Amino acid sequence: MTVPEIFDRAARRRRRDRIVGGYPDHAFLREAMVDGLAERLAGVSREFTDILDLGCFDAGFVPRPGARIARCDAGAAFARAAGGVQADEDRLPFSDESFDLVVSAGVLDQINDLPGALTLIRRVLRPDGLFLGAFIGGSSLPKLRAALRSAQADRPAARLHPAIDLRSAGDLLARAGLTLPVADVETLTVRYAGVGRLFEDLRGMGASNLLTGRTPMTRGEVARAAAAFTKAAGPDGRTAERFDLIFLTAWSPSPTQPRPAARGSGRMSLATALERFAKPD
């Protein structure tokens, strides 16, 4: 079955190459993701010797000091700067069972075949290997979405990427064959003086419109969107925009992992258990 290409792969590579120099000025969301992944990793008491940083950007994430870290990015310039390889996340060039940890911060929401990418992540992980990922999803950018709808009432067009919600993220992990899946969300609020500054951040972090068949906005549409965005501002003249950061945790299958008890193997019926907590007459 052919997966529809909703993102322009070539445009994504070009844009990632263009943002390399100025990326640190717009990296606040990925920095929050990296902090969240590091916090989750700190709670795992085991060694990781071979790690894949998938969507490495500037190679600022060092999951475990002293481990061997392979870097991979869809943009050639980021991959080159990080000493890694250039490849799309749903077309990984690595051999099966090459890593015991895969981390990915800030790219999973831009992949044409996300189920396929997660399946490849499972394949490159060794048995009982860990996957940690984070991306922008959920109910992100509600003010911008509303402003764009208002600006394009006569000819609506897709300007923002479809957002993956929390439940779907967890389902995708299970669908890929990963075990013990956990998906959770952290929300950041950023206050903008105008929509132009928000557009700058989205471009600078590589999160601008990459949809196939996209068309540029007219000057009138941009002006109306800016006015609608400003209308949503608070008393300080700034508009509070929301970013939902979706975090994923899952493991590659292994016979050593804990498994739920077989159905019907319980030693006490539910009715009997409930009787113990029933109030006396």
Rank of each mutant, 00 (worst) to 15 (best):
Q152L: 15
A163E: 14
S139Y: 10
R149E: 11
A146S: 13
G138P: 00
R155H: 13
L144M: 12
G138S: 07
A158C: 13
K143R: 14
S150C: 11
A157Q: 15
D165E: 10
R159N: 13
A151R: 00
L148D: 02
L160K: 03
G170Q: 06
R149H: 12
A158V: 12
R145C: 05
F135W: 01
K143S: 12
R155S: 14
A169Y: 04
A151W: 02
Q152S: 09
G170I: 10
A157G: 05
P142K: 08
A146P: 00
R155D: 13
D171A: 15
F135V: 07
R145G: 14
A153E: 08
R145M: 03
S139H: 13
A157M: 13
L141F: 15
L144I: 04
G170A: 03
A151T: 03
G137M: 06
A134C: 13
S139E: 15
G133W: 03
R145I: 05
A151S: 09
A147E: 05
R155I: 05
A157I: 12
A169T: 10
R145W: 06
D171C: 12
A151C: 02
I164V: 12
L148N: 00
G133A: 08
R167A: 14
L148R: 00
I136E: 15
R149G: 08
L144F: 02
S168W: 04
G133F: 04
D154N: 11
L144R: 03
R159D: 00
L160D: 00
I164D: 04
A146T: 07
A153K: 11
P156L: 13
I164K: 04
A153M: 07
S139I: 05
G170N: 01
L144V: 00
S139G: 12
D165Q: 03
Q152P: 04
L160R: 01
G133D: 04
G133S: 01
A151K: 02
A157T: 12
D154W: 11
A147D: 06
R159H: 15
P162G: 07
